[in-house]
Design a protein around this nucleic acid. Structure first.
Lengths: 336, 336
DNA sequence: ATTGGCACTCGGTGGCCCCGGGTGCCAGCG
DNA sequence: CGCTGGCACCCGGGGCCACCGAGTGCCAAT
């Protein structure tokens, strides 16, 4: 649809709005009742006919009201929806979220919960990308005779930890020394680039100590590799129960997709990464059978990570977009 | 119901089984089709009549099939349901879960996900109780000029972390010294009992350094108090979408309860704590309006914590109980 | 105590009809 | 030329009704 003809767009907007609100096909007459369009029903009908011609709306049965198509939602999002400023309580909730700092993981957990609550949809946040992260500090703590806690802290302030089994008999001081050596070796290095420095370190160590270094090195590499990009934190999946009826097909495959996270990760990698830039994918644009009746509103935050909400394609895009954008911006600003 | 008359119990069991499977009131005839009861329909009817007399089953409308009441489910759970051994794949999944150790939090996260997946219900796990836990180690890491990472490790192997803002200008060595002093002061102390030793520590410190110690002490106390008992980890809430129809009343209040966690925490504190002892609460036994059509199958693990599943009162108690018990036992064993 | 038989009940389903909101088209008007 | 009012038509949904069948309770017989 060419961006011309503001009235047709206005009508499309009204249709989307009503349909999202009532969940029922909307006709020319009832449109006039709820909106100040300034034209007659017949005119609306003509425009609707044109909109249908363009594939933006459709009638579920002959001579019933119209329902937006995916393409219609797309046009709505692109040309009609305007960012709606958040209400002050919402704004305050977001700010409170960030003030009570805690660590990054906790911050994200709270963020995703808040997002789910504000939008009443499923909210997701990608763990901060760590590709580019440099190591700030490695800490070793002897937790028990044969258990060692390995903590990895990156410049981004992210903390990963792991308890590994080790051969017993080494003193706490031994590990303190190893920690210092490790830190000298890897501090400031890229998290993806640990093999070389750890190898060098191994050379400088007396052969007797090498097994210990090897054990810890392996744990460190695994730790760096683990949650590296992959994981997604989710909240509000229970909101699906509320909108289950919106997915006329079964919800099962949808649940599977959420469980899998794989599709979601692909989705995230396809999305723009610039912080605060909101991107919307609707229905078939998600290119996954199970998500055919779903929509995702996402935005980048921090350095290439994403935050998003997922709901039925018949969702309230206006508040969705506004909220996601606001959250992404606040979090980005906080992380910087 | 007196534990006598095994046939009536058998019939109750059959009714529960069929009803859970088909979601439809079950009558005497169809019961005979699906079960080898060895008696005639008339006999079944007589027994059903008696069961109804006792309040274990009820007919939704005059002369339709029977449906178990909460009391009926209770009797089923108490007198009929037998532990069903897990299938080998299930068993293997649980074992795999524990082998790939990681830290405690991660273990619990995976546990709760697995439990949700196996039972197709909402799964919950209480954070390990830390009331009795002693502190093993405190670690301070200067993350940035005015950011300090505080890590608290307890004997149970649990790790809590928090990043706090500090007044800038202190060296990493300063914090190393403080860490050693802190550890001397609090190592081995109860996590609930930090005020005294920290106070003593403060006395021994030169006045100039006191602000620093105060800052860190406060963080430590907060850290110990925070997630202390409270939090609940949840998974599979999306499964509610699947069984949404099972809750004839609206799901909304149920979602609120899950969100709140408060009711759930009360519930946990009311439950038996002995590891592996399964406890079932059905409908009104949960004593919460929103949970009137729900049921919870829970078991203790570790030292006084709980793991549980929540679903519609019309749920598959047999696999629920078996799975919860198995998981609780495995995790308990692993933590010991 | 159990059973086969029988009369009775009543919720659910399918057929039917009507209603109302919805459409498309067209002629007329500013 | 675009908009409007009017009109004929369409059809899904709801209300009504009649029927069917699964289910029940009771009773006499074994």
């Amino acid at each position: 649809m060419r961006g011309t003809d503001p009235r047709k767009l206005q009508i499309l907007g009204a249709i989307v709005e009503d349909y999202v609100a009532t969940r029922e096909p909307v006709g020319s007459k009832s449109l006039l009742e709820r909106h100040e369009l300034g034209v007659s029903a017949a005119t609306v009908r003509n425009d609707m006919s044109a909109l249908e011609e363009e594939g933006l709306i459709t009638q579920p049965h002959t001579s019933a009201g119209r329902v937006p198509t995916d393409k219609g939602y797309r046009a709505f999002v692109d040309h009609v929806a305007a960012i709606k400023p958040l209400s002050t309580p919402e704004r305050r909730a977001i700010r409170a979220l960030l003030e009570d700092s805690g660590d990054v993981e906790e911050l994200l957990a709270r963020t995703v919960r808040l997002l789910a609550q504000l939008t009443q949809q499923v909210a997701m946040v990608q763990y901060p990308a760590r590709r580019q992260a440099r190591i700030r500090h490695v800490e070793l703590v002897k937790v028990a005779e044969s258990l060692l806690l390995v903590v990895l802290i990156t410049e981004s302030g992210r903390v990963d930890q792991r308890t590994i089994p080790v051969t017993p008999g080494r003193s706490a001081e031994h590990y303190a020394g190893m920690r210092d050596a490790l830190n000298r070796a890897v501090a400031g290095r890229e998290v993806t680039d640990l093999a070389a420095p750890l190898g060098e370190l191994l050379e400088t160590v007396p052969p007797i100590d090498r097994p210990a270094v090897v054990e810890v090195s392996e744990a460190l590499v695994a730790l760096a590799a683990s949650r590296a990009e992959g994981r997604i934190m989710m909240a509000g999946t229970a909101n699906l129960a509320r909108s289950a009826e919106d997915f006329s097909r079964d919800v099962e495959p949808l649940l599977d997709v959420l469980e899998e996270q794989l599709v979601l990760l692909r989705l995230f990698t396809e999305m723009h990464a610039s912080p605060g830039a909101v991107e919307v994918r609707i229905g078939s644009e998600l290119r996954d059978q199970a998500l055919n009746q779903a929509a995702v509103v996402g935005a980048g935050y921090g350095a290439g990570s994403h935050v998003a909400i997922l709901g039925p394609s018949r969702m309230d895009y206006v508040t969705g977009i506004s909220t996601v954008q606001a959250i992404a911006r606040y979090v980005s600003r906080f992380l910087a």
